[in-house]
Design a protein around this nucleic acid. Sequence first.
DNA 1: AATATCAATGAAAACGTTTACATTAACATT
DNA 2: AATGTTAATGTAAACGTTTTCATTGATATT
Lengths: 331, 331
Amino acid sequence: MAITIKEIAKKAGVSIATVSRALNDDPKVKPETKELVNSIAGELNYNPNLLARNFVKKTSNTIGLILPDIFDEFFTEIIKGVEQHCFSEGYFTMVTSSHSKRTTVEAVIDFMSTGLVGGIIMMAPAVSNEIKDVLSKCTIPFVVINGKKDFSKTDSINIDNYNGSFKMVEYLIEKGYKKIAHITGPKENEDAVKRLQGFTDALKKHGLKVNKSWIVEGKFTIDSGVDCFNDIMKLKEKPEVIFAGNDMMAIGCYNAARLNKIKIPTDIAIAGFDDIFISQYLTPRLTTINVPIYEIGLHAAKMLLQRLNSNENYKPQHLKIPTTLVEGESC
Amino acid sequence: MAITIKEIAKKAGVSIATVSRALNDDPKVKPETKELVNSIAGELNYNPNLLARNFVKKTSNTIGLILPDIFDEFFTEIIKGVEQHCFSEGYFTMVTSSHSKRTTVEAVIDFMSTGLVGGIIMMAPAVSNEIKDVLSKCTIPFVVINGKKDFSKTDSINIDNYNGSFKMVEYLIEKGYKKIAHITGPKENEDAVKRLQGFTDALKKHGLKVNKSWIVEGKFTIDSGVDCFNDIMKLKEKPEVIFAGNDMMAIGCYNAARLNKIKIPTDIAIAGFDDIFISQYLTPRLTTINVPIYEIGLHAAKMLLQRLNSNENYKPQHLKIPTTLVEGESC
DNA sequence: AATATCAATGAAAACGTTTACATTAACATT
DNA sequence: AATGTTAATGTAAACGTTTTCATTGATATT
């Protein structure tokens, strides 16, 4: 049987109310009493029953982290960032992902309606109306990572996709490239949309015309990278460089290139976006846009906990995470 | 305010006890009553307060997953495996890792003493006495992944490191290699120890002598792979192939080789262990031992839930996960 | 000296659920 | 007719904590 405050109360000769207050460092308790209670608690190796505590307080020192279906190494970093900050503030982290048996929306509802978590962090690269709907009814604080701009009533964190993409294209132009192709992510994916926008705007700014056939839609997966690469190589007018919408698809390009004995960067140059862990170990090292993934998780957790600990309804925050260009040998 | 069974009871004209029983599908409740209660619950969009439920039942439909300090893409798959199975059985997954601010032991204690989780899955490549100690006092079921053999009182899951390593060495010998070096993991790491054992035994079986200077201790990190590779290349008698204790260190070898213009596999061959995601995208593709990581998580979850749902103390299970050789072009 | 203020503590309710025990009514057995 | 059995439901306690609302005794204010 675990130790309860009742037993501490008995040993200390005070009421359970005083014990509770002492343990919670209530200023109304006499310092001596506090000390007494704390020492007895330590002696008995007391640990508060969080189930009971959360139950009566109607909150939870656990936060829920909802990840999208495919979660790769990218998300490990997010989990790490979230978990480490939460832990240091006395919170636990519950993870879940949407998969064959559950949608993101269902995950939100699960988390929200059971009382199990006090707040939610949600990765939502594609924000459907259904999601917006359920979130608008959400009774606990939440932070959206990568939501749309129009999703402004709540805290959100976004990667600065537009500028990252813009930066990359300017870099390529500076290097002398004039024929630049782009493999986009899925149209529904907000990151993908912004990256495409940065791409076209940068081209326009430098007086390069936007060649429609050099913009191909991928799926942010390696396989789709392979397919898109092959499609591009079939064009009569080939580009000099392919800017893949993310590193996964850039890897797909590498693979397709190797298979077809096409040399990078001499035959065609490749650039990516994300700077995932693998990218630095590709040969040649991929030129890409670094996204500080760990930091995203960290900031998401910070925002959420701030929210949880300030009952006044403060103005929703919107954080845009800056990116940096990483120069490899692939361009 | 969320709906409670009290309100359902009122609407249905029965007591809260009956509602509780009906919702839990107690056979003592008349089918008609059950139906009535369920339909009202559905109407009101009732969701049980799990905090209250778990509190009174002194269990939790949440399991705790403890990961080691450095957790890379390898662990993503574990998390996925655990989470997906747990979810399908109505359990939530809480993750944590040991890091600068907390040891594995503290994580266990945290999970155990708060009532927040009903069971624990722990990845413990190195099982210290301290861990053994705290686990022996553990009051809730747990499963250890990669524990030592002598840790037999509880459920455990192990990678078949020995045979994987043995297989690899036999494969290399078959390919004609005679001078085989091995970069081991940390001595405390149980996986590393078993892999080394498989290595030496395979050599002995085939009448090859074990050259001490060809066995170098790494740390299972990329950097240590670089260092060990360089150390080996400084030897007067160089091996023909380096069998790295894990893929991360194999990647380190790749990097060091590239820097020194050493060609793989012509100048020296490299093999790894784990078959992590990246390995298939290395050039040349790494020859390695595939470990079904997702399955490990899945089985761990299965074992734990089985344990949780059978109050009789059944015999502890020990699962050994088989591995397969993946032939790349690096040997 | 009477009263107000205050610091420290205690008593008890409350949270939403499960469950041991009690109760009822219907039916079966003697 | 009296008793036992059973099915279905109700009553109320219990879980460990926080918190509202007293209560006490001491000190300050008039």
